Amino acid sequence: MEAIDLFSNNISYNAIDDKNIMSLISLVRQGIQFPVFVNFMEKSPFDLAEWSGFLHVSERTMQRYKKEERTFDALQSEKIVEIALLYKKGIEVFGNSHNFDTWLNTQNLALGKIKPKELFDSSFGIGLLKDELIRIEHGVLA
């Protein structure tokens, strides 16, 4: 199976079709290797400490994964893919990563005065952010 680049132009919420979703399911089931994750992490605005919170894994465990070049389990891999897709969607909506990163780090009234990135630790939170990005994209602001 060919590797999926989480930042490629053809993998996004808008481009997920049956073929792509099956590739993503396969990727999640195989698990994301730590070096692949590091490549993605370095392109994201989040450090290892933040990622450990998103993935519900201690920083010490993350360091061990790094040292041993381990593979994340399916649940952690799925969360990484969800965040990667959400991040790409945010860049599409806001026009660039800087604007989206600013939005992620700013308290949001529509989200109960929390920073959007604080919702990355749950699939429900990621879904809520995806819905919020779609509303912003269509000019429906709460």
Rank of each mutant, 00 (worst) to 15 (best):
115 K>C: 05
106 T>P: 04
52 S>G: 08
118 E>Q: 11
83 I>G: 00
125 G>D: 06
86 L>Q: 03
28 V>K: 00
34 F>R: 02
131 D>Y: 07
109 L>Y: 14
131 D>I: 05
53 G>N: 08
47 D>V: 07
42 E>V: 09
5 D>H: 12
16 I>A: 05
49 A>N: 09
41 M>I: 10
56 H>M: 13
91 I>Y: 02
141 L>T: 13
12 S>R: 04
107 Q>K: 14
32 I>N: 02
110 A>M: 14
134 I>W: 10
77 S>D: 04
12 S>M: 09
129 L>Y: 02
40 F>C: 07
52 S>D: 08
125 G>K: 06
50 E>G: 11
140 V>Y: 15
119 L>N: 05
84 A>L: 02
103 W>P: 05
26 S>D: 13
88 K>V: 01
37 F>N: 00
135 R>M: 03
8 S>F: 04
140 V>P: 01
20 N>F: 07
71 T>I: 13
27 L>H: 00
120 F>I: 07
28 V>S: 01
10 N>T: 12
109 L>Q: 14
17 D>P: 04
125 G>F: 03
59 E>R: 13
54 F>M: 07
83 I>R: 00
87 Y>M: 03
68 E>L: 13
119 L>G: 05
15 A>P: 10
91 I>S: 02
111 L>N: 07
23 S>L: 14
9 N>I: 10
99 N>V: 14
117 K>G: 02
129 L>H: 01
33 Q>W: 06
58 S>K: 05
95 G>R: 03
68 E>G: 09
49 A>P: 02
